[in-house]
Amino acid sequence: MDEVDHGPMTAGETADARSESVKPEDVKRGSGVSLWKQIAETLEAEIASGARKPGARLPVEAELAERFGVNRHTVRRALSVLGERGLIEATAGRGTFVKEPPLRYPIGARTRFSEIVLASGREPHGRFLGSQVEDASVEVARELGVAPGTKVLRIDTTHEADGVPISCGSAWFVHARCQDLDLVYAATGSLTRALSTLGIIDFRRKETRLTARVADERERGLLSLAMGRSVMVVERVDVDVAGVPLQWGRSSFAADRVQLVIKP
């Protein structure tokens, strides 16, 4: 049975409803297949054929409603189904996009977000959220090899690939060694470049620890995740060329946007 849309509509949706009197080529009324299902199948076929490529932005709901001659409630249901199938993804403030394949993210002795994203053919971007000088907790002190209460610099960031949020997290540095690192990072968006201005040209990964859980409210906001979506939590210790701990960090990755690859 064809879907029938009920309930009050906004002024904009009233215009959409009037357009249903026009019979478009893409959907067939009276066919026994719901209109939203026909729309979902049409868009899915366009994605499968390559007509809509990974990363491509879909038209807004009003444009799709006009194309198919339905109201926005019908379009919204079709898009919801495609989202559940993992074919499209809505990002707050940007729109709805054909979902990119998971970013292959190797974790080895040299792990650099910008280099990994560039190698995948995407554009990396690090966003500075804030920083604070604080007393090292027992956990942070243990990871950095300093005494509890030592002044450390915490930098909070998010990272994106082609504008899609990939991870968010915090990193801690011994403040006496990395003064003004946060200011340089805020200006450059690259930790590697920021460290080089302090004379730290190279560093390597000493240890990586992985866990998984449901995203909390803050992570959902920063990563544009729906309720119930999962994150992979990556804890890392990086050391300088002399083996001295340089940073300890904890980042949450949108679980379905990355494929973590552990390299020897």
Rank of each mutant, 00 (worst) to 15 (best):
E20M: 14
T74P: 07
T208H: 06
Q38A: 08
E84H: 09
V75P: 03
A17E: 13
R110V: 15
E61T: 05
Q38F: 07
I116G: 01
A56I: 01
L79T: 05
T192C: 01
L82E: 07
K99M: 13
Q179S: 11
V241E: 15
R122G: 04
I201S: 13
H125L: 10
Q132R: 14
E41L: 12
R204F: 12
Q38S: 09
R127L: 11
R220P: 03
G86P: 09
L35D: 14
R72H: 04
S80E: 11
R67F: 13
L191M: 12
I201M: 12
R57H: 02
V75Q: 05
A161S: 13
E139L: 12
K99Q: 13
A17N: 02
R229T: 10
R94P: 00
A147P: 00
V239Q: 09
V237S: 04
R257G: 06
I88D: 03
A136F: 10
N71C: 13
A187M: 10
A56G: 08
S80T: 08
V152M: 04
I201T: 10
G199Q: 08
S114Q: 08
M227P: 00
A48K: 15
S21E: 11
G86K: 06
A254W: 04
S251V: 03
H175Y: 15
K99P: 02
A187V: 03
R213K: 15
E123C: 00
P165L: 05
E44M: 03
R177S: 06
V239L: 11
P54K: 10
V98G: 03
K37H: 05
Q132F: 02
G243C: 08
E20G: 10
F97I: 07
R220V: 00
R122A: 06
L181N: 10
Q179A: 13
S34R: 15
L64I: 13
P54H: 09
R72L: 06
E160H: 15
G30H: 08
G126E: 08
K206F: 06
A136G: 07
T208K: 07
E84N: 10
S251A: 12
K99V: 02
P54Y: 06
R76S: 14
C178G: 00
E134N: 00
R72M: 10
A119V: 01
A119T: 02
L82V: 05
R18T: 07
S49P: 00
A141Y: 05
A78H: 09
T157N: 04
V146P: 07
W36L: 02
G50R: 11
L246Q: 04
R236S: 14
S131W: 09
E134G: 00
R112G: 01
F68W: 09
A242G: 01
G163E: 12
C168A: 15
C178N: 12
